[in-house]
């Protein structure tokens, strides 16, 4: 019986392994194909300026998406990130316009983001509301708050130029600060998730909460960390956004939720299929960035871009769902 069982299992697992291989690299292949196609299709794509430009364009999205990845790792979904981007992007300019020094304004905006994350996790971990619902409601509340504190108008005038440099300046005249911040955030997050016990425990909680608990892991705490980091990263993104735009926008950042989720889903098809990873998410954001940038350069309308993006998400999630149990709730 033992022999037959083992043989049967081997037989079953072999084609799946090939499938996994195809899956692991198919997203990367799409990325390469897109890259080559745009390079050949338009001479404005493969230039140093444009490649740096892409990094700059995806920086805020990537930071939001990496934040979502922490939540996903613990099997929590955060639908409030878009509005947290907006909140932080409004708060920092508002504080500065009111005369608060730059560092304090930034800390205030980040603190507000973190506070949202903690309220979300109090609802999810403390009360037991599913994260999907708790953060959806939080998003709705934040949307209202954003319009309330801004009076529905953009906040500008009186923002110090040093602050604007965060979004508009460049290192050595080449690498924009947002791109630099993104690279630092990605590298630090990768290290945290892949090289520390923190990351291991966070994944354990998402992988099997009961097994994690019976192994002595603080399951509730890690669920809080996942949601808190998700909001904190969205706030970082919001600060860059307002510095880049030179103003605080009441409805800034709303698009980052969907694009961020898309980046995470695309990332889940790579590396460790079915699991959200930092590098996977980064590639996901890169794919979206290259696609948006390239389609723009070849003169495709934004609504077509939206359709293409939707199709890519469906394909990515279909690929993941076919081979792994993709459970989000």
């Amino acid at each position: 019986m033992t022999m037959t069982t083992t043989l049967a299992q081997e037989k079953a697992s072999r084609p799946m392994r090939i499938g996994t291989l195809v899956q692991k690299y198919s997203t990367l292949a799409v990325l390469v194909v897109l890259f080559l196609a745009f390079s050949i299709g338009t001479d404005r794509f493969f230039t140093g300026t444009n490649l740096v430009n892409i990094l700059q364009q995806i920086s805020m999205l990537t930071i939001v998406a990496v934040g979502l990845t922490f939540g996903f790792a613990a099997k929590e979904m955060d639908l409030s990130v878009g509005y947290v981007v907006g909140l932080a992007g409004l708060l920092a300019p508002l504080l500065m316009v009111a005369g608060v020094p730059i560092p304090l304004s930034i800390v205030g905006a980040l603190g507000a983001g973190l506070a949202v994350g903690l309220i979300n996790s109090a609802l999810v971990v403390g009360v037991g509301v599913p994260s999907l619902i708790a953060t959806l409601a939080a998003g709705s509340i934040l949307w209202g708050i954003n319009f309330m504190i801004s009076g529905g108008r953009a906040i500008y005038g009186g923002i110090p130029p040093e602050y604007l440099a965060v979004g508009q300046g460049k290192v050595a005249g080449i690498l924009p600060y947002p791109a630099l911040i993104m690279l630092v955030v990605v590298a630090a997050s990768w290290f945290l998730m892949e090289r520390t016990t923190f990351g291991r425990y966070l994944y354990a909680v998402g992988g099997n909460a009961r097994a994690a608990e019976l192994s002595g892991i603080k399951v509730r705490s890690y669920r809080v960390y996942g949601l808190a980091l998700s909001s904190l990263f969205a706030a970082i993104s919001g600060i860059i956004l307002s510095a880049r735009l030179g103003s605080g926008q009441p409805n800034g950042g709303e698009t980052y939720l969907l694009d961020g989720l898309a980046a995470v889903f695309i990332g889940m098809t790579m590396l460790r299929p079915g699991t959200a990873t930092v590098m996977g998410t980064f590639f996901g954001a890169l794919l979206i960035g290259i696609m948006n940038n390239g389609l723009n350069l070849v003169g495709m309308d934004t609504y077509v871009q939206s359709i293409v993006k939707g199709i890519i998400i469906v394909i990515a999630v279909s690929v993941v769902s076919r081979t792994t149990k993709l459970k989000l709730l």
């Binding site: 520390t196 016990t197 354990a204 992988g207 099997n208 009961r210 097994a211 019976l214 192994s215 699991t275």
Partner: peptide, 27 residues
Amino acid sequence: INAMIGDWTVRENMSMAGIQETSLKPF
């Protein structure tokens, strides 16, 4: 259901309860 994470490798499952012992403190 109670002890293992199906997606994980033998190594990851084995170190789940004791990995802090082979890791560098304090982080």
